[in-house]
Structure formats: C-alpha cells, structure tokens
Nucleic acid binder design. Structure first.
Length: 435
DNA sequence: AAGACCACCAACCGCCCCGGT
DNA sequence: AACCGGGGCGGTTGGTGGTCT
C-alpha cells in the first residue's frame, strides 16, 4: 500500500504519469489519456482520500473529482484488492488453504464466491493462489485435490448434488435450451449462458483409429442428466455418422505419417504451445487404444461409432458426457449413464464439426501427436472407452483426480485458435448442419 | 557471476448482468 | 423495449524477485 502522506502532490504526480507508456496487460481499448500499470503511493493516497470522503462506488467519479488519471474500473480493483480496510495480506494459512481447496472442489472457478467465504481475502488472491498451486501440482504429477475431496468432486460430479439443482427452473431451462440450440439451430444466436459464450476453451473429441473403424466423437450438447431426452439425439447420430468420415480422413492422414513432423506452416508449433503462455488452444484428441467391448451381442470384430454428448458447464463448472454407440444407422444404443468432468469449455456441436471439417481440408500433415494425461472426475463405465477422454484446461493438463479414470491419450492441436478461424469456418457454421 | 527458469501477484481485458433512464 | 453506464467476474498478461544451473 502506498504512503498516504504523499497525497499532497498526488494529483500533479498522477497527471504527470498520464504520459507514461502502457502498463502491463497490453491490449487495445484503453481509455485515452488514462494511466495504466502499477499504482504509485500518491495515486493510492488520492483514491483512499476519495473513498473516505465519498464512500465506495461511483468509481468513474474518482477521475472526474480528484484528477486521478485512472479509469473507474482500475480504481475499484485497486481499492478492493489493496486499499480497503481489513484486507489480510501475506501467505494463506493452512486453514485458508484447506478452505480454498474445499471451495474449489465444490464451486469450481468461482473466485468471488470463494472470496466471500474467506474474510479479508480477495478473489484475485485466491485465483492466483489456485492457479499457482494447480500448476505446481500438475508439474509434480500430484492430484489437484486431496483424496477426501476427490470423493467430494466425484460425488458432485456424479449428479447427486447437481441433479437436485437441475430441478431448479433456472437449471433446467438453462441447460435444456442448450440441447435444442445445439442440435437444431445455430448456437450462436442463442447461447446466452456463460459456459458457451466464451472464446477459446476446449474441444473434446476422440478419433479412435482402431483398425478399420473410426471413431468416437465427443461433442457438446447439454447438461440435463435425467435420462429423458427427445428425438433430437437421433439427429445428432445422423450428424455423427455424417461426420465420422471426416474423422476417418484425419485418422488416415495421420497414419500415413510415419514420423510426424510439424513441417507445415499451417500447423506451426504445437508441443511448444504451452511454453509461451496461456493462449487457449483447441484440441482434437486422437486416441489410439482399443475400445472396451462389452456388448456380447455384437461380434468382437465389430466396432461402433461411439458418439459422446457432453454438457455445457453448469454453474459449478461441471460438465457431463454421455456416450452412445452407433452400430449402424438404425441401431443406436446408449452405453453409459454419464461421464462427468470439470474445467475447460465444451464447444457446441457446430463448432466441433466445423473445426473438424476445416482440419480435414488443410494441406500438409496433421500436427505432431503429443501425449496428454486425461482426467475425469468420474466415469460410469468403460475406462478405456474412446470417449472417456479428454480434458485440457486452458492448455494445461489436469492430472488425475480419480486415478482409475486417468488415461494417456495422444492428441494433436487444432490448426486454429477458435478466434483465428478463417471465413470458411464462419460460413460453415451458418450452414451447419442439422437441416 | 550470469543467465535461465519459475513462482508470485498486481493489473488489465473482455464480457456480462443489472438497474436506471 | 431499448439503450447505456456502472460494476462484477473470470481469464490473461507481464513485471519482479528468488532460486537454480
């Protein structure tokens, strides 16, 4: 915190600082003439004085009334995170750490809600703590949650908790809309919920290249886990059939690469992708292990198309994945009850298929396969099932929470960050697909 | 001693919600 | 109903300082 005694010259100092270069964070959209970057003691003093006089709120008035060249948002953040009274500073106590872990197991990345239960701590602190911790543990190959909380996660994820919530009108409406949208019309216009609106995120897919048979696909749909779904799923199966050929193409392409090299400029570097920072990278997962076969009424040689439908995240960041097998166009079987996982973002079907199609049209070899540890909070059946995959969290791997559900996949990155997709994608997205 | 690497964390950004007009 | 601004939130960036090689 700054020294309030310096406040006398603060206004002049703040104005002077207007001319300084950009601060951290980069990016456009900054209000012209407003300072960015680290706060000085004199700026702090101005802000403190303002709040003492006028109270919190009306942050944009700070600039108007006090000549502080900071945007209101910046002022609010500075006050909330550093200047307001009763803030606890310093390292988290073991009790606080435990609370954070528990809350995260329950709530997911709801930093503000977590902060509300940790007096004196800010959402930013908690977020930073968690991100650091998670990285450290992943690097060490340790589970994110201690064993007792893994159980909590699994129980939550299995639906005991969420099922109750799903009976809430909001939940039902929220997620059920996702179904309709996903399977019949463009999701763009209707995805008004948090989980589907954000750019970047996770594309979940499995392309199983077990001998002659493609493939499994896991795409996004909805969260409703009550088992009662309408005919929309048959549309989805048709779509899955239509597109599994694309997966085949990708598989064949890949299999032709005896020594995959990312030589194509189109693909760029992949394994180094996580080194440079946190850009979100879409991922297609390419699985090459045998699917577990437990359907004795099919011959062992037969392989179905396995079609997974995953949810949008609920408020607590829980996703759910259902698996279906398509033996032929007339025979569709639901094979599992649910598979649930947390983190990342599942794309709407349209996005997935559009990306897939783009992949198939790109020149050059597919990107190099890289091993990816996969974690699921829980699973229902078929540990080696092709659709029991695949989660990357902001480009970082999530290690096992449930060791039985952990597997190692080979994956390759998509060609594009979602935001970088060319016009083709936009066009496809509009035409796609359920008509 | 110097550079590489890493953890930490402050600050920013974009997006969304909500209340007021 | 539509628009707008304030505020909240989660994700991301980048500087700094400590540790390692």
């Amino acid at each position: 915190m700054g020294d309030p005694m310096q406040g006398g010259v603060a206004a002049a100092a703040a104005l002077e600082l207007c001319e300084e270069g950009r601060g951290r964070g980069g990016g456009g959209g900054a209000v012209k003439g407003l300072k960015k970057g680290p706060w000085t003691p004199s700026e702090d003093a101005i802000l403190v004085a303002y709040v003492h006089k006028h109270g919190e709120g009306n942050w944009n008035n700070v600039q108007k009334n006090c000549g502080l060249s900071r945007c209101g948002k910046s002022c609010r953040l500075r006050w909330a995170n550093h200047l307001r009274p009763n803030l606890k500073k310093g390292a988290f106590t073991p009790e606080e750490e435990r609370t954070i872990i528990e809350l995260h197991a329950k709530l997911g990345n709801k930093w503000a809600r977590m902060a509300s239960q940790l007096p004196g701590r800010t959402d930013n602190e908690i977020k930073n703590y968690w991100n650091t911790r998670i990285k450290r543990r992943m690097r060490a190959g340790l589970p994110v949650y201690p064993p007792d909380l893994q159980d909590l996660c699994s129980n939550l994820a299995r639906g005991g908790h969420h099922r109750k919530e799903a009976q809430d009108d909001h939940y039902l409406g929220h997620h059920h809309n996702q179904v309709v949208v996903s399977s019949s019309t463009s999701s763009k216009s209707s995805n008004s919920n948090n989980s589907s609106r954000k750019s970047g995120g996770i594309l979940i897919a499995a392309a199983k290249n077990s001998h002659d048979h493609p493939s499994s696909i896991a795409t996004s749909s909805y969260y409703n886990d009550d088992g009662a779904r309408g005919d929309d799923h048959h549309d989805d199966f048709a779509a899955a059939y239509h597109h599994h050929r694309l997966l085949e193409q990708i598989n064949q392409q890949h299999q032709q690469q005896s020594q995959p090299e990312s030589t194509s400029e189109s693909y760029g570097s992949n394994s180094g992708g996580s080194g440079g920072g946190n850009f979100l990278r879409d991922v297609l997962f390419h699985q090459d292990h045998q699917a577990q076969r437990d359907h004795d009424h099919h011959s062992p040689d037969e392989q179905p198309l396995v079609y997974g439908k995953s949810s949008a995240a609920n408020e607590e960041g829980i996703y759910q994945l259902r698996l279906f097998e398509v033996w032929d166009e007339d025979q569709v079987e639901q094979t599992t009850t649910a598979t649930t996982f947390r983190g990342g973002l599942v794309y709407p079907d349209e996005d997935f298929y559009a990306l897939l199609e783009l992949e198939s049209q790109m020149p050059g070899p597919p990107p190099e396969l890289i091993p990816v540890p996969v974690n699921l909070l829980s699973y229902s059946s078929g540990l080696n099932h092709p659709a029991n995959l695949a989660l990357m969290f902001q480009g970082e791997m999530i290690p096992a929470l449930n060791s039985p559900s952990t597997t190692q996949l080979n994956c390759y990155p998509c060609l594009y960050n979602r935001d970088e997709l060319p016009d083709l994608y936009q066009q496809q997205q509009q035409q796609l697909m359920w008509d």
